[in-house]
């Protein structure tokens, strides 16, 4: 198992490195002069040239890339923002907790709402309850986040005046954004759980379990749900990763200075170090999540674990040789 984890971490590291190279190369190809961006249109050409020299912009491309990676790995120094002149790493660290809060709570609530309701829907397929749930889920999954956010704002902030609608000062401020993200995510999970459960409860081993005289509830939770969890966990992981980078609409709707907003501003202002760092950061976080999902997989499914862990019998056989 340890071998599997180490192997996966190494692969993740290579992936992040690849991403960093791609982003670095693409940003390098875009037009624009970093020093000119920092100093403004009116600055004299000499000052611009001098700043470019100081930033190392005159060095060859590959050397700049290696320097960048070296500094990033050894000192966590991803450069300074062109617009605020602050280290971009601390900017990210300021924005990330806000996005993480929204993403974590949303995935958590989406799971505890979506998965049980999906199981219910599958078990009571075509019942009134199932129809109500699936139609609601379809509706929620189809509504864009900003629209849902605005409706919630209208109801809870402007009319009822019980929840704040912008900023991130207190926990209360997070309620509406989390609800906005949770509802469609729960709807998606409900639909996925329903379809995988429907597939699983038609499997032969479910019939075997029923033929043992096992109560339906036990069959569903012990045999069906555990098997159906594999694809569900994958989607949960992916949507969590997606949320970390993609709550932009919600952050914008509720004016929360999270990672999504930081990213958008960086791109709009062509703040190269900030764009680089946010992209690499997200790639790294995403990779970590996928790693966790894979490890969970191995714990649930012995067939996957078997590929990485030698069984005691195989070890014994090898020892005999």
């Amino acid at each position: 198992m340890a071998r599997f984890v180490v192997q996966r971490i190494l692969i993740s590291f290579l992936v992040v490195l690849g991403v960093s190279f791609l982003v670095f190369a693409i940003l390098n190809l875009t037009p624009g002069d970093p020093a000119r961006l920092m100093l403004g249109q009116m600055a004299p050409q000499e000052a611009v040239d001098q700043l470019n020299e100081e930033l190392g912009m005159n060095k060859p491309f590959l050397q700049r890339y290696v320097d960048y990676v070296w500094k990033a790995v050894t000192k966590l120094d991803f450069g300074r923002s062109y617009t605020t002149n602050e280290p971009v790493f601390s900017e990210i660290m300021r924005a990330f907790p806000k996005t993480l809060t929204i993403a974590l709570f949303s995935v958590f609530f989406a799971s505890i709402i979506g998965v049980p309701m999906g199981v219910y829907s599958a078990v009571k397929q075509y019942s009134a309850g199932d129809t109500l749930l699936t139609v609601t889920a379809m509706f929620l999954a189809a509504v864009p986040a900003f629209l849902l956010g605005m409706i919630l704002t209208l109801v809870f902030s402007l009319n009822l005046k019980i929840l704040p609608n912008y900023g991130s000062a207190t926990i209360k401020h997070y309620i509406l954004p989390i609800v906005t993200v949770t509802l469609p995510a729960a709807a998606a999970l409900l639909r996925l759980t329903r379809s995988t459960m429907l597939e699983t409860i038609r499997q032969d081993y479910i019939r075997t379990a029923l033929s043992k005289g096992m109560p339906d509830r036990q069959v569903i939770f012990r045999h069906a749900l555990k098997n159906a969890l594999l694809p569900i966990i994958t989607i949960m992981g992916l949507s969590f990763g997606g949320l970390l980078g993609g709550t932009i609409l919600v952050e914008k709707t509720f004016s929360i200075a999270g990672l999504g907003m930081l990213e958008i501003l960086a791109i709009q202002k062509k703040d190269v170090p900030l764009v680089m760092a946010t992209t690499i950061f997200l790639a790294a976080v995403f990779n970590m999540i996928i790693l966790v999902v894979d490890i969970l997989y191995a714990f649930i499914d012995p067939r996957i674990k078997a590929r990485f862990v030698k069984s005691r019998r195989k070890k014994a056989q090898e020892a005999l040789r």
Binding site: D204, Y205, R207, T208, S211, I300, D301
Partner: peptide, 15 residues
């Protein structure tokens, strides 16, 4: 009790 046709799918793979 009953024995089913296909032993490949009659057992829960993760148990």
């Amino acid at each position: 009790s009953m024995i089913f046709q296909d032993p490949m799918s009659a057992l829960n793979p993760i148990m």
